[in-house]
C-alpha cells in the first residue's frame, strides 16, 4: 500500500531532510566536532544582530506595503464596475511579475533607478532633482525594498484575489439596504471577513522577502547587511573562520520562518471557512 509513495519520501529524505538536519546539527558543533552553543550565541553579536534586524525590517516593510498595494490593486480590478477582462490581464501579469525576480529584476531596477537609470536621468534632467543628491540610493535598504516590492505586490494580488472573490455581493447589498455606509461595511463586514486571508497573505509575503537572496545580491553585489547575503558570503568566500557559523545563521532563519509558519497554518484554515 505504502510502496507507491516510497520513492517520493526517500527522495525528500535524502535531498531535503538530510541537508536540513545536517544544518541543525552543524549549528551546535564546534570546529573540533564537539557540542557547543557558541555559534548560536554569536548570532546575537554584531554584525549578525544588525543583519537579522535588517532582514526582518525589510521583510516587514515590503510585506506590509506590498500587501496593502497588492490588495488595493486586486480589489480595484475585481470590484463592480471594473471591466471583466482586467481580472485575467492582472492575474496573468502578476504571475509573470511574481516569478520575475533575482538577478534580472535587480538589473531592471538598476536600469530604472540606478545612478544613471532612466528614471533617475529623467528626474535630474527634466525636473532638476537628482534623488541621489538627496540621500536616496538604490543600493541601500530602501533600494532593496523597492525592488522586493516588484515581486511582493503581484504575489499579494495572486494570493488575495480568491478571497476578494469570496466577498459576496449580497453582503454588500444587505449592508447598504440596512443603511450602512461604505466605511461601515468595510469596518464591520469586509475587513473582519478578509482579516484571516489578509494576515496569512502578509505572512507569506514576509517569508518570501526574508528568504530572498539573488535580488539583493544582484543589486548591491553583496554589500548589504542581510542574513541571506551573509550566508552566501560565508559559503562562497575562502573564509577560514568557523564553518559552522553559516549553519547557525541558517538555523536562525529557519527559526524565524518556522514561527511565521506556525501562525500561517491556522490562519489559512480560518480563511478558507468563507471560501467558495
Amino acid at each position: 500500500m505504502w510502496l507507491g509513495t516510497l520513492p517520493f519520501f526517500a527522495y525528500a529524505l535524502l535531498f531535503l531532510f538530510l541537508p536540513s538536519g545536517q544544518v541543525m546539527v552543524g549549528a551546535f558543533r564546534d570546529v573540533q566536532g564537539g557540542f557547543t552553543l557558541d555559534n548560536l550565541t554569536t548570532l546575537f553579536e554584531e554584525p549578525y544582530r544588525t543583519e537579522f534586524r535588517n532582514s526582518i525590517e525589510v521583510s516587514l516593510v515590503t510585506a506590509l506595503v506590498g500587501g496593502l498595494l497588492g490588495f488595493l490593486i486586486a480589489y480595484s480590478a475585481i470590484r463592480e464596475g471594473s471591466p471583466r477582462f482586467l481580472r485575467s490581464v492582472i492575474t496573468t501579469f502578476s504571475a509573470v511579475a511574481a516569478n520575475f525576480a533575482g538577478i534580472p529584476l535587480a538589473f531592471a531596477f538598476i536600469a530604472t533607478l540606478g545612478t544613471i537609470g532612466v528614471v533617475t536621468q529623467f528626474m535630474t534632467q527634466q525636473l532638476g532633482w537628482n534623488p541621489y543628491d538627496h540621500g536616496f540610493s538604490l543600493f541601500s535598504k530602501t533600494g532593496v525594498e523597492l525592488a522586493y516590492l516588484y515581486f511582493q505586490i503581484p504575489l499579494m494580488i495572486l494570493v488575495i484575489s480568491p478571497a476578494i472573490d469570496g466577498l459576496r455581493r449580497e453582503w454588500r447589498e444587505a449592508a447598504a439596504s440596512l443603511g450602512a455606509s461604505s466605511y461601515q461595511f468595510w469596518r464591520h463586514v469586509g475587513v473582519p471577513i478578509l482579516m484571516p486571508s489578509l494576515l496569512s497573505a502578509v505572512i507569506l509575503l514576509f517569508g518570501n522577502s526574508f528568504a530572498a537572496y539573488a535580488t539583493a545580491y544582484g543589486l548591491t553585489g553583496g554589500s548589504i547587511g542581510l542574513v541571506p547575503i551573509r550566508i552566501g558570503y560565508l559559503l562562497s568566500g575562502d573564509v577560514l573562520d568557523n564553518p559552522h557559523l553559516g549553519q547557525a545563521l541558517a538555523v536562525g532563519m529557519f527559526v524565524v520562518l518556522a514561527v511565521m509558519m506556525l501562525a500561517y497554518v491556522p490562519l489559512q484554515r480560518r480563511a478558507s471557512r468563507w471560501g467558495r
Partner: peptide, 26 residues
C-alpha cells in the same frame, strides 16, 4: 469604473511596467 480603482490600477501598472521599459531603453 470607480475613480479610486483607476488610480490604483495606474499606480500598479506604472510600478510593474517602468522597470521593463527602462530595461528596453538600456
Amino acid at each position: 469604473i470607480a475613480p479610486g480603482a483607476v488610480l490604483w490600477l495606474l499606480v500598479g501598472a506604472a510600478y510593474l511596467l517602468l522597470p521593463l521599459v527602462a530595461t528596453s531603453i538600456y
